[in-house]
Write a protein that binds this DNA or RNA. Sequence first.
DNA 1: CTGAAAGCGCTTACAG
DNA 2: CTGAAAGCGCTTACAG
Lengths: 336, 336
Amino acid sequence: MVTIRDVAKESGVSVATVSYVLNNGPRAVRPETRERVVSTMRRLNYHPNAVARSLVRKRTHMMGILVGDEQSEIVNNNYYAGVLAGVFAGARQRGYNITFFTAASTDKDIEHHIRAQRPDAMLMIAPRLGQDLPKRLKSVGVPLGVVGAGDSYEDDAAICVDVDNRAGMRLGMQHLWERGHRKIVYAIGDPNQESTQVRRMVFEQVLREWGVEPSEHDFIAHSFHKEVVYTAVEQRLQQASLPTAIFAGNDGIALATLQAARDLGRRVPEDIAVIGYDDWPIASSMTPGLTTIRQPMHEIGEAVVQGLANLIEKKSVKAETRVKRFPPTLIIRDST
Amino acid sequence: MVTIRDVAKESGVSVATVSYVLNNGPRAVRPETRERVVSTMRRLNYHPNAVARSLVRKRTHMMGILVGDEQSEIVNNNYYAGVLAGVFAGARQRGYNITFFTAASTDKDIEHHIRAQRPDAMLMIAPRLGQDLPKRLKSVGVPLGVVGAGDSYEDDAAICVDVDNRAGMRLGMQHLWERGHRKIVYAIGDPNQESTQVRRMVFEQVLREWGVEPSEHDFIAHSFHKEVVYTAVEQRLQQASLPTAIFAGNDGIALATLQAARDLGRRVPEDIAVIGYDDWPIASSMTPGLTTIRQPMHEIGEAVVQGLANLIEKKSVKAETRVKRFPPTLIIRDST
DNA sequence: CTGAAAGCGCTTACAG
DNA sequence: CTGAAAGCGCTTACAG
């Protein structure tokens, strides 16, 4: 590998000078000298070693994401994947790489890993509630960007981006109301997610506004696993006092719901309406096409990275960009 | 940040000694000394700087993946995502991080980026054919692992892992034959993918074995985009000389195919049978449940990383592990 | 406008 | 068993 020293020697200048042409400053270099250096860099096929650079600059141009024991999110959760695509796009614009830290499992391990690797920032996508990692990161001094956790980590995260879940839930409920639905069951996701909590709250709130007192019976599944959802829907649809609509916690839950309804011979939306949340790419291909609440996953992913990049580079960020909420959209298809 | 020097001073030893206890060798340290060093490391909350380490060791413990202008694969291609999950699992086992290089677009950029970042290896998942990146990487000296490209990059890649596509295609064709299908259309994917090429070849071969001369008319779509597939299937199903079955290039194509058939009022499998390829997590949730050829995506992802790790660490790899083919499985559901 | 030198935080021969 | 020192490949004050 050719180093800065080789280029210096070959150009008859000092390594300092080579460095200054490499970085376009901060000190000026005489045009002829710069020319000469540039051409020998090209001739020797020189590429500055980013590792050495990181060491002295104390900046790795890398943002980290943790990947746990099971990496099922990437495969089974299109929200996660959609946000990730946005994260990559944002990282590309700002010149960051995205590193998945695989090695760690306990919070302590993770802290160790991060202190060792020196990412410029860390990212959490749809984290579970009640983790103390954000606090640890804060003490380590690595800025944290959190996506899809509402304001639950607002104190310890530098950037919080999410969809406006209250608005999204109301959008869906209002749509069901307009379609004449009064008896609605919520096939709700993992209670350990902030979004689940908020949406549940709004669901109950809206029910009360309709003059209906919500009960535990209105919630089923409590999980994102398709098998669990399938069974829960199957059971609920065979009990007395049938709902006319099911609100699904996300489009994955909606898919399992459609499947259970189909297997029971129920027509959607005639016998039972189904509405999802997220608008996964496959939503329009479901049978029937799924009505759902769209989250701008790509924009959300881009936004965290932009926010973090601003923070890293400008050392500060406007208060109104620290916490960002994107508006959801109601996408009406054939399932309601 | 506390450094090795702080620990040395605080323990009354040299930095060399601290380094040797840190790495458990290669030189022995007196037990009492080691004890003392370990405890001050803990007390000072010391975490060795991986960047500095990488600089001297010339090993980053990182494998890189390129992400292009559009990152749609992660969202729309469950094969890619499934392999990725396996890659993460393998990386975790062997102590590597996975970095997505976002910055580059041209091959030259990419080479530059890689020379700068110094990944221990690079990974390509389902790459398009005819790229010269593999050759460039070879000249850079970074080992390359290729997944899902058959043997097309065998000369320049260090590790090639894939499913046995010939076997997979035969499995599907034989199943269709047994179900009585003689007139089959192949909704084929992007011709720029090795898998597409191989499967097409086997498709034609099997047809000839059946005594049927394949024609251009037997292939439709030539793309992985669902809109393109939808339109192609829609048109084909309204022409004369209807097929009794459609073989889809992957499960995404199969989904769009099912959708088109449904919208035309065709019953699956009664009017038209559909078989997919890959076995995405949603395959069982389609309407009807999709018969498909399963690829062990997770194992494939793990295998590349294991192969590369062996290469990096042992400097060599057995010839039989350099190229690896996993057997596919026929998963029979309700669409055939 | 430019060079010589210190330093980033480690590892590892060299010498005892 | 251990320390002093060189070196990995850069950046950036310091001095001219």
